[in-house]
Every structure is written in C-alpha cells, then in structure tokens.
C-alpha cells in the first residue's frame, strides 16, 4: 500500500512491498517530521485532480458565480494550512502582522512554495486604501482549463483566490478575494489576457493598520 503515490520517484524506496496495516497505523501523522526534502507533484496529476474538482462542483451549482464561490472555499482550506506550515517550517520564526508584509509574503514565499515562482505583480489600487491586487499572467491552475463560451467570465483561478483569502484570513487579515480576467494591450506584443486577484480588506483590518502605523 503506497501512501504517497504521486511524489517524484527520486528516492526509489520499495514502498510497494507489502506493508501490514499495523505498520501504517504506527506511522502517525504526529510522528512524521515537518521538515522534509522538497517533494514535487506532477503537474498532470494536479491538473487531473483539479479538473475533476471543477467538474464535480459544476454538478452542484446553478450559476457560474456559485461555482467560483465553491472553488474559493476549496482554496481557503489550502491557504490556511499552507500559511501555518510555511511560517513554521521555513525557519522564519516570524508572524506577519503588517498588511504590506503579509501581502509580500503571499506574493513571494507562498507563491514559490505552491507554484515554484513568485507572482508577477502586487499592486495597490489607485485611490483605494483597502484594495490591492496580485497579477499573474498564466495561473498554474488554469493551464489546462478551457472555459466554454456559455460559462461567461468563469475563472477557475478562483481556487487560487481562495488560497489567498485563506492565508490572509487566518493570519488575521479578513478580506474578500476574487479572480478576474483582464485584457491587456502593450505595444511590444499582441493583446493578451492576465488574471488578477482582487483583494479587498475588511474595515477592521484597515483600522488596526492605522493604529499600528501610529
């Protein structure tokens, strides 16, 4: 019985030799170390799983907005756990208590942990104090997703928006996060589409920020 079937076969342990149930039972999650060598997941494995998740949720919703909401909720659980694990494991030994630093943490550390690259841009919405956005030209989760025409503006990166929301929320920065397609035109290249993750922070967070800023 293999427990981690989809990891890189770098260290070829003979995991498929028979392991009795009692041995698995002994291998408690609380006994396993948190620091481990970086294990990677095949992109195709993840893509299949994600596509299944989208299809499954699709059968349980009426509208596109509901589907995005469900994906968001799914990501929320990932975000919560990723934040907890990352802050503990990366030997940072620091929590983030300021808004700009937690956003930077998400853009760089969290993104690198999940997608092996930092997000393209983190920007503040002009003349809005409580709105920021993270821009990503090609979100990993959308690589093999093509949205049918009758699904309107569905962006499956709502899952990633959920991850951001989960990380922010559990760090004490309540926010709503949504994913949108934006068309961009630049002189040097053809018109292209990017995804932006719109982050709108709760008023309580902004009040606390003002206090901390003194």
């Amino acid at each position: 019985m293999e427990l981690r079937r989809f990891t890189q076969p770098s260290a070829t342990k003979p995991t498929h030799t028979t392991v009795s149930n009692s041995e698995i039972a002994k291998w408690n999650i609380l006994d396993r170390p948190l620091t481990r060598s970086r294990e990677e997941l095949y992109l195709s494995t993840f893509s299949f799983l994600f596509a299944e998740a989208v299809q499954y949720l699709q059968t349980r919703v009426q509208q596109v907005s509901e589907l995005e909401e469900k994906l968001n909720q799914l990501g929320y659980r990932v975000g919560q756990r990723a934040l907890e694990l990352l802050c503990f494991r990366e030997k940072l030994n620091r929590r983030e208590i300021r808004l700009v630093s937690i956003l930077g943490f998400i853009r760089v550390q969290l993104w690198k942990f999940l997608f092996k690259k930092s997000a393209d841009y983190l920007k503040k919405v002009t003349d809005r104090e409580d709105e920021y956005y993270i821009e990503e030209e090609e979100p990993l989760v959308n690589r093999y997703i093509s949205v049918p025409k009758d699904f309107g503006q569905l962006n499956c990166a709502a899952f990633m928006a959920g991850i951001i929301r989960g990380a922010l929320d559990s760090a004490g920065f309540t926010a709503s996060v949504s994913a949108h397609y934006i068309h961009r035109e630049e002189k040097s290249r053809l018109a292209f589409t990017v995804t932006i993750f719109m982050i709108r922070l709760d008023e309580s967070v902004m009040n606390r920020e003002r206090k901390l800023a003194g």
């Binding site: 999650i29 609380l30 396993r32 948190l34 659980r77 919560q80 756990r81 907890e84 694990l85 503990f88």
Partner: peptide, 12 residues
C-alpha cells in the same frame, strides 16, 4: 506543542 498542532492541522 505548537509543532504537534501544525502537524495536526495539516490533516485534510
């Protein structure tokens, strides 16, 4: 205890 909690929280 914190480490134990993190491990616990990673359980899906």
């Amino acid at each position: 205890a914190y480490e134990l909690y993190v491990k616990l929280a990673l359980n899906p």
